[in-house]
Deep mutational scan, measured.
Amino acid sequence: VTLFVALYDYEAITEDDLSFHKGEKFQILNSSEGDWWEARSLTTGETGYIPSNYVAPVD
């Protein structure tokens, strides 16, 4: 499982989006939707859509 880490803070715009803070880690559930990925936060356990350009793979 490839994990991703937030590079910036993000505040949800719609109820389907997931708010997060810089440094938060995610498991990507679906990355086939283009620039918005469905993800689960490993910090909160919540799922929602995140902007793919706000995250990077964890080394």
Rank of each mutant, 00 (worst) to 15 (best):
V1I: 13
V1D: 13
V1L: 13
T2Y: 11
T2C: 08
T2I: 14
T2D: 10
L3Q: 08
F4A: 09
F4E: 01
V5A: 05
V5P: 00
V5H: 05
A6P: 00
A6K: 00
A6W: 00
A6N: 01
A6R: 00
A6V: 01
A6F: 01
A6C: 02
L7T: 04
L7Y: 03
L7C: 06
L7G: 02
Y8S: 07
Y8C: 08
D9C: 06
D9H: 06
Y10D: 00
Y10H: 06
E11N: 12
E11H: 12
E11Q: 13
A12V: 02
I13V: 14
I13R: 15
I13P: 09
I13H: 13
T14W: 12
E15F: 10
E15A: 14
E15T: 10
E15L: 12
E15C: 06
E15K: 15
D16S: 11
D16Y: 15
D16R: 15
D16T: 10
D16M: 15
D17Q: 14
L18Y: 04
L18V: 06
S19K: 04
S19P: 06
S19Q: 04
F20Y: 01
F20Q: 00
F20P: 00
F20E: 00
H21N: 11
H21F: 13
K22S: 07
K22V: 11
K22E: 07
G23R: 02
G23I: 00
G23M: 03
G23V: 01
E24T: 07
E24F: 04
E24A: 05
E24G: 02
E24V: 03
E24D: 13
K25P: 05
K25C: 07
F26C: 01
F26Y: 01
F26S: 00
F26H: 00
Q27S: 08
Q27W: 13
Q27H: 13
Q27A: 10
Q27C: 08
I28G: 01
I28R: 04
I28K: 04
L29G: 04
L29E: 05
L29R: 04
L29T: 07
L29C: 07
N30W: 07
N30V: 08
S31H: 10
S31T: 14
S31P: 08
S32F: 10
E33R: 12
E33A: 13
G34F: 11
G34Y: 09
G34V: 15
G34W: 10
D35K: 10
D35L: 12
W36T: 06
W36C: 06
W37M: 06
W37K: 03
W37D: 01
W37H: 04
E38H: 15
E38F: 15
A39N: 00
A39T: 01
R40D: 02
R40Q: 11
R40E: 07
R40P: 01
R40G: 02
R40H: 08
R40L: 13
S41W: 02
S41I: 07
S41D: 04
S41K: 13
L42F: 07
L42M: 13
L42E: 10
L42V: 08
L42I: 10
L42D: 05
T43V: 11
T43N: 10
T43H: 12
T44W: 02
G45R: 04
G45C: 07
E46L: 12
E46F: 12
E46S: 09
E46M: 15
E46K: 15
T47A: 07
T47H: 10
T47W: 09
T47K: 14
T47E: 09
T47P: 02
G48N: 02
G48S: 02
G48D: 00
Y49D: 02
Y49R: 15
Y49I: 10
I50F: 01
I50S: 00
P51Q: 06
P51Y: 07
S52C: 07
S52L: 05
N53K: 15
N53V: 09
N53P: 06
Y54K: 08
Y54V: 05
V55W: 01
A56M: 14
P57Y: 07
P57N: 06
P57H: 07
V58H: 10
V58W: 13
V58N: 06
V58Y: 15
V58M: 13
V58R: 03
V58A: 11
D59N: 12
D59Y: 13
D59K: 10
D59T: 15
